[in-house]
Amino acid sequence: MSYPSNHPTPHPDDTAAGIEVTAEFERFTQRNDMFTRAFWDDRIRSKQTDQFFASYRMEAAPRRGDGFTQRDFALRNASWLVSDIISNRGNDAGKREGFQAAIANDTPVAPMQQPVDDPARMASEIKRIARFFGADLCGITDMDDRWLYASRVDTRDMSEAPNDLPQGMTSVIVMGHQMEENLVATYPSALAGAATGREYSHEAAVVMQLAAYIRNLGYEATASMNDTGLVIPYAIKAGLGEYARNQMVITPEFGPRLRFSKIFTNLPLTHDTPKPRGVRAFCDICTKCADACPVKALPFGPPKISTDVSAIKGVRKWTSDAEKCFGFWAKMSSDCAICMRVCPFNRDFSKWQNKAWLKIALSPLRHLALWMDRKRGGRKKPGDWWARDI
């Protein structure tokens, strides 16, 4: 399936989703994402970035200090194992599955096709099966090709390659995978990186199993993680949450503490709708993430149209300085999510106190909610995480 390089036509649900696409819109070329640029762009690649990637193979000496010991790096790297196994199997073909290429089908599409007389009932069934396999959230939206990458990356030489999908895909199933709250509380640390890696490994299994289920029903299903398209707009359009200043999707169940995966399919399904509740208005008055960022990579002020090479063109939104952000990651030899940790929405919303706070935060009393949050979000000592478990 081929797609035009530009697709600025507005969609009916853009306003509800809080997505502002301008006439300058261009689909994003994945070769320009920051992690890919670190392999080919001399302005980004450095000894520090090479050490950053090497640390995930324990080839770079771990830093000293709480949260950056060999044990911390060992747990982080072990948490990535399942994801790494999947992503490495397409290396010979230049396809890092789940990151620079869609996950290859492990099962064929069944020759007999299960009739779907009620797409709404089938959508409910898909969400049930997603939860059965381990997804924490699941929503479904239409196949909006604006958010597909204009091209993917051939990892053998980092060149552009066709971003192909089977013909006739009509829906995108988006799943959310919760990161462990106690690990997130230790950012920045290598230990906290285990929260990220564990969910990439979890989502790899979940998204592959759900896609296999759909193929067994006789329909196309392409499993996808960071590859193929931008998951955030799909998650917002699927009603899972709202976009925030920290570049994350704020959900009413877990705040920003999620990773997302997706499946492209032609299975007949009804689509969810965006559910704006007031996160944008809260972020308009809150700058905790931008204030806490050690390299000031997050924006202050209102959403803007970015001209950064690693940002999508022609969309008015809050956009980070990806080079500053990744530079800090490279310096630490681990990912950083301070912006996730300090976010006022980073709460356990199964507790009545946090449900009450959420109601205030999404109301005209949002200034009160921000004041109530003023002492939250401090970093927990990684050593305490180890000691508590013992």
Rank of each mutant, 00 (worst) to 15 (best):
N226H: 12
H177K: 01
H202L: 13
A212V: 07
R259H: 09
G134W: 00
M158Y: 10
E20G: 00
I129L: 14
E181D: 14
H202G: 10
N105E: 03
E97A: 02
I390G: 14
V153G: 04
P8I: 10
Y234I: 02
S79C: 03
S334P: 01
R71A: 15
Y149F: 15
R156A: 05
E59W: 11
R198T: 10
R374T: 05
V109C: 04
T9K: 13
S151E: 11
D144T: 02
F73N: 02
I214Q: 05
Y200K: 06
A356L: 15
I305Q: 11
M34K: 06
S171P: 10
A356H: 05
Y149C: 03
R27F: 07
A292T: 06
V315N: 05
W357S: 06
D72F: 05
M175L: 13
I250Y: 02
A104D: 04
D118P: 00
G67Q: 13
R376I: 10
M58R: 04
R198Q: 14
N346S: 12
G197D: 02
D118T: 01
P8Q: 02
M208Q: 15
R388Y: 01
I126T: 07
I126D: 08
D348I: 05
S159T: 14
V174T: 08
A102Q: 12
R64N: 08
N226P: 00
I126W: 01
N354Y: 08
E203Y: 00
A204R: 03
L148D: 06
D13Q: 12
G168Q: 00
V174S: 03
P276N: 00
Q30R: 11
M248K: 09
A330G: 11
A78Y: 06
L75T: 04
P12K: 15
E199G: 02
A361E: 07
N216H: 10
T107R: 07
S55C: 04
M179K: 06
G94Q: 11
S350L: 01
F300K: 12
E26T: 15
D142Q: 13
R71D: 12
G139H: 00
K313M: 05
I214P: 02
P10S: 10
D164S: 09
T155V: 13
K313H: 12
